[in-house]
Simulated scan of single mutants.
Amino acid sequence: MNRPGEPTVEALMARIAALQAQNRQLTERVVKLEEELALARLHRFAPKSEKHIDRLFNEAEQAADEDAADNEDGGVVVLPDTGLPASEGATGKKRGRKALPENLPRERVEYDLPDDQKACPCCRHQMHRMGEAVTEQLHIEVKAKVLQNVRFKYACRHCDRTGINTPLVTAPMPAQPLPGSIATASTLAFALVHKYVDGTPLYRLAQAFERAGVPVSRGALGHWMIGSSEKHLARIYDVLKLRLR
């Protein structure tokens, strides 16, 4: 029985729940501010030799101007004929767009004329295909998909009919990088590269997953980072440490 003036149990539980929610919000804000502070320190105290044009609003304009300057013709001095063998540096540096790497897979996309346009515009006879013009473009596509791990189960029909117990055997799965997690090795690599190579804070990474239609909380991303470090990256770190020593 509550004394007069004392809060009830329901009121205390509601107050505790409100305080816990407020504590979670403050914790998330502290983590966000710490990440922003670390990023600001990195931007301020990074070596001056590194170019941080990626932090500027006019990055596209600057990059386009630099590319145009690199691709300009000129800069090659024509030397008089001296009768001596030509040196390798006399031809100048080749300019222009670099070819795409040969090791990348190629996908052929064909574009053909409609049948009504295959008649000769001069004599109206049917034209034949004499060749093709091939141009290459770089196509990068990031897709999110769900892997359904189907493990087949087996049982003995004879034991099912005649025996007391029917043993069940389920096909095993390969070892997973983080057991019990929804993230595959590819997903973990994607998140780790964006976090530690590109310097993307976790809340921005969570926003990137959200834009891709995959709601992943910042807490889950944090567990991915910690679990990957403890189970895998720590062993690589120990080996590198021993090798350097």
Rank of each mutant, 00 (worst) to 15 (best):
Q137M: 03
D70Y: 14
N71F: 11
H194V: 00
Q20V: 08
A64M: 15
K93D: 02
P179C: 01
G92P: 05
L147S: 07
G180H: 08
M173T: 08
S229T: 04
D70A: 09
N58A: 09
F45D: 15
R44Q: 14
M173L: 12
L12E: 03
R24I: 07
R235S: 14
A14E: 13
G96R: 02
P7D: 05
V78A: 12
A234G: 03
R24W: 08
C159E: 09
C123W: 03
E61R: 06
E66Q: 10
E61K: 11
D81S: 04
C159D: 08
Y196P: 00
D115G: 03
L100E: 02
V150T: 09
Y154S: 04
I53K: 01
A119N: 02
L192N: 08
G199R: 05
A208H: 10
G199T: 05
A175V: 08
N58T: 07
Q25G: 09
H43V: 04
E36H: 01
E36T: 02
Y154L: 02
L113M: 03
T91R: 06
D70Q: 14
Y154A: 05
T162Y: 15
S186K: 12
T8Q: 03
R29D: 14
L205Q: 05
S87K: 07
G74S: 09
A99Y: 09
G199D: 07
R95T: 05
